[in-house]
Every structure is written in structure tokens, then in C-alpha cells.
Amino acid sequence: MPLAPEFNVDEVIITAMARQLHGEVLVSSVTAFGSLAAHLAKRRYAPDLAVLSTPESGMDVTPMPTLTLGQFLTDVQQGIPLTMEDIFDAIFTDRFRIWINPSQIDQYGNTNITCIGDWHRPKVALVGSRGIPEDTSHLSETFYYILNHSLRSVVARVDFRSGAGNGDSRQLLGRHGAPTVLVTDLGVFTFDGPGGQMAIQSLHPGVALDEVRARTGFELYVPPGPIRETEPPSDEDIRIIRDADPLEVRKLELMSGPLAAEKFVAIYERERQTFHATYPRVGKLGR
């Protein structure tokens, strides 16, 4: 991917994600990319964000992406504990934001994490809709990211709608829960095209429109006028991301195969040490 050498694609994506967040809302940390985007946004762009250290708890702690230590982070930093009821109440009252990483997203912003093929006899059974139906029926902004923009992930029509997009899916729903933005390794996309279709907002530095078209499963709407370039991360953005993720857990989401397995084991073996070096032992057991 022909990006300028001083920053990496993960940093472009995380910075683009961070710049979407604003206001005084809870931001859940389910993935390394999501938690780093929330952390960067809070430090640079949206100081009132209430960042969580796990999918459901630890408000107002500094997140550190790890494989197993999310709840321990809450504990040592004495983050404010929340309940699942708190989380869903925040979703229903629109005080919650989350970056969702779907397996498929389509031209209307419907998303799928449930299955490939027919639900009743799937070719691949994935995980199940989790809380995406709640997000896509209540939040005034819904955010998606995909790290490998391809014909398999950015498709004309998802195999199963775990999350409601625009178009037909809005018939029984108001605007709440409609898709807001998709960030991929190629660019930033909105859903402001005709009938709520996906539209290009900007392409990352070095990405050509032809490449995006070749890796998108439908005719992508290109707004009139010149195509903007995604503003690259600043030196300060990059420093904050790298400092917050000393184990480089974010890189795992971009890797696969034996290389990923090796990195995975290395992080798992090392993360307690890094964690203790960063946070002295307090919390419920060590206090």
C-alpha cells in the first residue's frame, strides 16, 4: 500500500476514526482499533468523551490494548464500573458510541457478523448479531471500520442483516441507527449518496479511485468535484497511538496466518510485564 513512509496504514485508519468522535458520550472499547481511536480522540479532538476500558466497563481509564487485561486495567486505574444495564441505557438514550468491525457491509450500510450464505444452512456460521441491532435502531451516529476493503467485505448486499442500514431497512425505523461513516484501509465513506447509498468522502494518501472501484462489490457513488485526500495523521497523533499501544496489539488485526500466531503468542507472554511497568499494582486485590 503506497503510503508515505512516516506513517502506517493502521495509524491513518485510527486517526480517521478518532476524528469522527465528538461530544460527551460513552465510547466502548471492543477492539484495539476502536479503543485507540477513542483514546486518541479524547486526547486530541474530543476531551469530553467517556472512554471505557472493556466492552462494558471501566469508564474514564486510559485504555491499553491487550489480549487479556481489559478488566485488570479497570481495576488498577480504579475506573468507574458500569453494568450491562448502564450500557444499554446509554445506547437507548443515545449517549453511546462504538466502532463496529463487521464481516460484511453493503452499499446501504447494512452490516453482517452472523453468517455467510443462508442463515438456516450457512456456508460459514460466524458469531451472531450481538448488540448491533440495538445500535442500529437507537444511535444517532453509527461507525464502522473494515481493515481489508475487498469484494468479500464491501458488497452489494450483505448475506444477513445483523445491523440495519439505509433503504428498505429504514421502513420500520426512524433515522436513529442509520449508518454514518465507514473507514477502511482505502478511504473514508459516508452514506449520503442517492437513497442513502455509500459515497466517497476521502481516499487515504496514495490510494487511487480505480483501486477502490476494483475492490468494491458495487458501483460506488462518487460525489461531484475533486476527490479529497484523507488528512494524514500528525506527528502528535502518531506519537499518542504508538505510546498507547506499546505491545502493538493493533497490528494483530491486520495480520493473518503464522505471522499473526507468532505475534499473538509474543503479546500474550509479554503483556503482564508491560502492564505492571505501566501501572503499579493497586485495585481490588492489590490495594
Binding site: T114, S129, P133, S137, R161, S162, G165, S169
Partner: peptide, 11 residues
């Protein structure tokens, strides 16, 4: 309101 507009409601 959850599941309106999704296929969860269908299956």
C-alpha cells in the same frame, strides 16, 4: 425497537 430493520426479526 431493537431488531427492526434486521434479519434477526425474520429468522
Amino acid at each position: 425497537h431493537a431488531t427492526l430493520g434486521t434479519d434477526v426479526l425474520a429468522v
